[in-house]
Design a protein around this nucleic acid. Structure first.
Lengths: 201, 201
DNA sequence: TGTACATCAGTGAACGCGCGTTCACTGATGTAC
DNA sequence: TGTACATCAGTGAACGCGCGTTCACTGATGTAC
C-alpha cells in the first residue's frame, strides 16, 4: 500500500466532517462534491476513492453526527439534577449561538424538511438522528407527569426543532430571539406543571 | 390582445397552484420549471410569459398560501369557544392526514429548513407564512397565562411545525402517529395548566 | 355580419452551465529483495 | 542499509445529463374596418 491506512482514514474523516458542516449550513443540494473536497483540501476526482456516490457521503455525514449537537452537555452536567440538566439542554438548543451556526448545530433543525426527500439512506440517517435527539431528553424528564416520559421527550424535541426552524426563518435578530425565548419558556413551564422526577435530588 | 386577460390570469393561477403543491411535496430544487408547466398542462417554454424566473415563481407560490393550511377552520368554527377552536386547530395540524399530504399542508412544515437558503424572496415569503401561522393561534389563547399570549402563540406554532417535521421523518406510520399524539397532548396540556381566556364563554 | 390584420400565450428546439461521475495518469510511499 | 518495484490516494480533463433560460415561430382569438 502506498499511503498508510491511517492516512486514508484521516482523509476520509476530514471529508465527512466538512460535508456534515457544509450540508447543515447550505443544504444537501447546494453543496457539491467539489465543494466538500475543496474544503477538505483535495480535488473532486479523488472523491470516489472514498465514497460510491454523493448519496453515500450524505448518509455517512448525517450518521457521523450521532451523539453530537447543542443539546449535548459536558461532563460537568453529571452532577446536575435532572430538571436542571433539562433546563440547560433547552437553553443551549434554543440559543442565539445555535441559531447562528447551523453548521455546528442540530442536523434535524438544519435539514429536517429536505433530507427525507434525498433518498432512503439520507432519510433513514436523519430519522435516527431524530430519535437520538428524543432519547437524550428521556433521563431528564419526570416519570409521573400527566404524559408518559417517552411522549414528553418526543414533544420536547419537536418543540425545540420547530422553535429553531421558526427562529432561523426570521431575518430580524431581535424577533428571532423572541421566538427562542418564547419556546424555552413554554417548554420549561409545561414541564414544571408536572411533578419532578423522583430518581434524583 | 389574443387571449382574454382572464384566460392568462387563469393559466397563471393554475401554474402557481401546481407549483405550490409540488414544491411542498418534493422540495424547491427537485421540482423543475418543466415539471410545474407540465402539471399545469403546458410546455416549459411558455413559463417566461408569466414569470421572470423560477425564483419569482417560488416566491409567488409561497405567498399564494397566505391564510391557507390545515390549521384553518371553516365557518362552523365561528361559534366555538377559543379553547375548543384551539384544540381543533392543533388536532387538524397534527393529524395523520396532514402528515401524509404535505402538498396540501403547511408550507413551513414542508419547506421550513430549505426555503431560507433559496434566495431572499423565498426566505421572506416563508417568514411571512411563519408569522401568519403564529397569528392564527393568537385569538384562541388565554390572556393571563404565565406567558404573554403572543409568546404562547409562537411556542404553539413551533411545537406544531417541529412535531410535523419529526413525524414526517419517521418511516413507520405507527411511530409517526405516536409523535403526533405526543405533541398534541403536550401542547393542550400545557395550555390547560393556564387559565382560560376571558373574552369568550 | 363578414373579413383582414395584429397580438401574444404558448410551442419546442437550442443554449450554456454546473453537476455527479468516470478515467487515464501521477507520484509519494510501503514493501520485497 | 540501499534500491527497484508495486500500489493506490489523489489529480484534472472529460463525459453525459438535466436544469433554467432564450428565441424564432405558431396559430387562436380579439380588434378594426
Amino acid at each position: 500500500m502506498r499511503y498508510s491506512a491511517r492516512h486514508k482514514q484521516e482523509t476520509h474523516r476530514r471529508i465527512v466532517e466538512e460535508a456534515a458542516r457544509q450540508f447543515r449550513e447550505r443544504g444537501l443540494d447546494a453543496v457539491s462534491v467539489a465543494d466538500v473536497m475543496g474544503a477538505a483540501g483535495l480535488t473532486h476526482g479523488g472523491f470516489y476513492a472514498h465514497f460510491g456516490s454523493k448519496e453515500e457521503l450524505i448518509a455517512e455525514a448525517l450518521r457521523s453526527l450521532r451523539g453530537s449537537g447543542p443539546a449535548k452537555l459536558g461532563a460537568a452536567a453529571e452532577r446536575m439534577a435532572p430538571r436542571q440538566k433539562l433546563a440547560e439542554m433547552v437553553k443551549r438548543y434554543l440559543s442565539p449561538q445555535h441559531r447562528e451556526r447551523p453548521g455546528q448545530g442540530c442536523v434535524v433543525a438544519a435539514l429536517g424538511t429536505e433530507a427525507g426527500r434525498h433518498g432512503p439512506a439520507a432519510r433513514q440517517a436523519l430519522a435516527e438522528r431524530s430519535r437520538g435527539l428524543v432519547e437524550r431528553f428521556l433521563p431528564c424528564l419526570p416519570q409521573d407527569a400527566g404524559q408518559p416520559r417517552e411522549e414528553l421527550a418526543i414533544a420536547v424535541a419537536a418543540s425545540l426543532v420547530g422553535g429553531m426552524v421558526l427562529a432561523r426563518l426570521e431575518p430580524d435578530a431581535r424577533a428571532a430571539e423572541r421566538i427562542l425565548r418564547a419556546c424555552r419558556r413554554f417548554i420549561l413551564d409545561a414541564l414544571d406543571a408536572a411533578p419532578e422526577p423522583r430518581d434524583a435530588s
